[in-house]
């Protein structure tokens, strides 16, 4: 094919260990490329299959949420695509006369908002202190947190319930009660952000201290401006968690429907026999919860990745 006497493409690789320049023959290169193509194709096939598996439940959920309630009922069915598409379920949810859904949504939003502020402050205080300050009892605090973390969380549910009840923060007071519980011990989750503080050079503090800054000023003016990624990570985590809490939220708010969070309300629709034909409404409610959180998460994904990777590497 080649009329011109082309110089064959040669891949030259420097092998430091051998100390020689080696040359890879063009045939070998071609087969390598074919190999590469083949393995890439396999990977694409796997990735496409995985994407389908990972997205399928959510797509199905969305399909179900758009099923016509009037024509196909609200129960579970054995087919995927609705025969009639409609907004029946969403319309039903948005009418406060039908259910407390909007109220639950609002409750959860309030809880998430407060938690993201208070928890972030707690976690930052603890992680900053344990990372950058040295004082008597520091090691003791860290070991205590380690030991406490080994007790299963639901063990103390009944005690927390009655503690909250003493403060009047159950049933009708469930919203502030849940905020209190979520935040009170949140300082124990200092690990990831401590890992972050550990990576900031010590010289930053020291030079500022030499210039006469107090520790508070160092914290506020030198360190805080550098903590944006970890602050955003912490806020994101604190904001997302309350949306999924069923167990404790139902335990604190039982018997007071207007004070449920959205997880408790929706969970009951599919798991309490009193609610017949609520499945598609559950799906619609689930979509309404998932969409904003997913969007928020996607926007802040970068920070999430930094947080979990940092956390994993530093334990």
């Amino acid at each position: 094919m080649n009329t011109k006497n082309e110089i064959p493409e040669v891949d030259i690789v420097v092998d430091e260990k051998a100390g020689v320049i080696r040359e890879i023959k063009p045939e070998k290169l071609a087969s390598k490329k074919a190999n590469e193509r083949r393995s890439n194709t396999i990977i694409y096939v796997i990735l496409v299959l995985m994407s389908i598996i990972w997205l399928a439940p959510f797509v199905f959920l969305v399909f179900q949420s758009f099923r016509s309630y009037a024509l196909e009922g609200g129960g579970m069915v054995d087919y995927l695509l609705p025969k009639t598409w409609s907004l029946d379920n969403y319309r039903w949810l948005f009418n406060p006369e039908n259910s407390n859904f909007l109220r639950w949504y609002g409750n959860t939003f309030i809880i998430a908002l407060f938690c993201s502020v208070i928890q972030t402050m707690m976690i930052l205080s603890v992680s900053y202190t344990l990372s950058r300050l040295r004082f008597k009892g520091r090691k003791f605090i860290m070991n205590t947190v380690l030991v406490l973390g080994l007790f299963p969380g639901f063990l103390t549910m009944i005690t927390l319930y009655f503690l909250l009840k003493q403060l009047g923060l159950t049933q009708t007071g469930a919203i502030p009660g849940l905020i209190l519980i979520y935040c009170a011990s949140s300082g124990m989750g200092y690990y990831i952000s401590k890992g972050f503080f550990d990576t900031l050079p010590k010289s930053l503090d020291e030079s500022a201290r030499i210039d006469g800054a107090t520790r508070f000023q160092v914290f506020l003016k030198i360190i805080m401006p550098l903590t944006k990624p970890i602050v955003i990570y912490t806020i994101l985590m604190a904001f997302m968690a309350p949306w999924g809490d069923y167990v404790f939220a139902s335990y604190v708010a039982f018997g007071s429907e207007p004070n449920y969070n959205v997880a408790v309300g929706l969970y009951r629709w599919v798991n309490v026999a009193d609610y017949q034909g609520y499945f598609t409404r559950f799906c619609a409610g689930g979509v309404l919860v998932a969409v904003p959180i997913t969007i928020l998460f996607m926007c802040l994904q970068k920070y999430y990745v930094e947080g979990v990777t940092g956390g994993a590497v530093k334990g």
């Binding site: 009944i158 049933q171 335990y251 039982f254 018997g255 429907e257 309490v272 026999a273």
Partner: peptide, 21 residues
């Protein structure tokens, strides 16, 4: 009047009689 199903009512009221209906 609160909607608490027959199944839940008993466990809830046993957990905390005072807060029960």
């Amino acid at each position: 009047i609160e909607p608490v199903g027959e199944g839940d009512a008993a466990s809830n009221i046993i957990t905390d009689v005072e807060a029960g209906a």
